[in-house]
Amino acid sequence: MTEINSQKLKHEQVQYIEFLSKDIVQAKNFYIKCFGWEFTDYGTEYTSFSGDYVDGGFTYGDPVNGTILVVLYSEDIEATQSKVIDAGGTIVKDIFNFPGGKRFQFTDLDGYELAVWSDLLT
């Protein structure tokens, strides 16, 4: 597993997320293009990732969608949505306003649904 930066640790905060992926190389390329995550491979069936505020991994297996919705934050939601589309993601809920800001939802190349939100209403 990746070494978690102790400055990011916060009591009872989610620290690590693991996904199943039928194609780990494809998953890595998608998340690098979208969010700049860094990866460390542990053999051919597991890779860990690290981003500014998230750590996790992908292990080989058949994805299961619909159990947990991972929500990412963006300072520029339109630019993030464009990166998701350019990387091959599918927008399943276009940008919409909600009381806390804006949000959209997408599926990655394995079919997982994730969301991106911004507190900026402009």
Rank of each mutant, 00 (worst) to 15 (best):
V25W: 00
K102N: 12
F98E: 14
F30L: 03
F58A: 11
I68Y: 06
D41A: 15
K10L: 10
G51Q: 12
N97I: 13
V25H: 05
A27P: 00
K22G: 14
K33W: 00
G61Q: 07
Y16S: 08
K28D: 02
D86E: 15
Q105K: 14
Q15K: 02
G100S: 15
S82W: 00
Y42V: 13
F96P: 00
K83W: 00
I24D: 04
E18P: 03
Y60I: 13
K83R: 15
K93D: 11
L109S: 03
R103W: 01
Q15I: 09
T2M: 12
I24G: 03
S82I: 00
L121R: 10
L121C: 02
I4C: 02
K33Y: 00
G101P: 10
N29H: 12
G57K: 04
Y16E: 05
E3K: 15
D76K: 12
D108H: 10
G100V: 11
W37P: 02
F104M: 12
G36V: 05
D108M: 11
I68A: 10
D52H: 11
L114G: 02
V14R: 01
D110W: 01
K10C: 04
T122I: 09
L9E: 01
S50M: 12
Y42F: 15
F19E: 03
S48T: 14
S48K: 02
D23C: 09
V84F: 05
E38D: 08
K8Y: 05
V64D: 03
L20C: 00
I24F: 01
T122R: 04
V92Y: 01
I17F: 07
I91D: 02
V25I: 10
I32E: 14
Y73R: 08
Q7K: 14
G101N: 08
K33M: 08
N65Q: 06
